[in-house]
């Protein structure tokens, strides 16, 4: 490899890294905004083992491992305050 081709390889890698970073920013920002838009809204959660619940969304931790919710309607009654593990959830939905 000559110096010029080495240089172009380095800049190509830098450009590629920058594109990936910009992509990650766009994807993450939109997801974080969707979580903010969900605050205070009723959300339906489809969980594993065919369990379905609804609750008012409160907040998520930044690693998206836990959702803090209120007024959780479970098959066995209402739990006023709860935390759902994201690993238990298959999908969730709400209306905007």
């Amino acid at each position: 490899l000559g110096p010029s081709s080495l240089f172009s390889k380095v800049t190509a890698n830098a450009a590629e890294l920058e594109r990936e970073q910009q992509g990650r920013v766009a994807l993450r920002e939109r997801y974080l905004r969707s979580l903010l838009a969900m605050v205070g809204r009723p959300v339906s959660f489809t969980m594993y083992e065919k369990v379905s619940v609804t609750a008012l969304f409160g907040a998520s931790d930044i690693d998206v491992l836990n959702f803090q919710v209120s007024e959780l309607q479970t098959p066995l009654g209402v739990q006023k305050e709860a935390v759902l593990r994201c690993s238990d959830i298959v999908a969730y939905s709400f209306e905007l």
Binding site: A91, Y92, E95
Partner: peptide, 8 residues
């Protein structure tokens, strides 16, 4: 309205 869903 829009229905928003997320699959984990």
């Amino acid at each position: 309205k829009m229905s928003i869903s997320a699959v984990l």
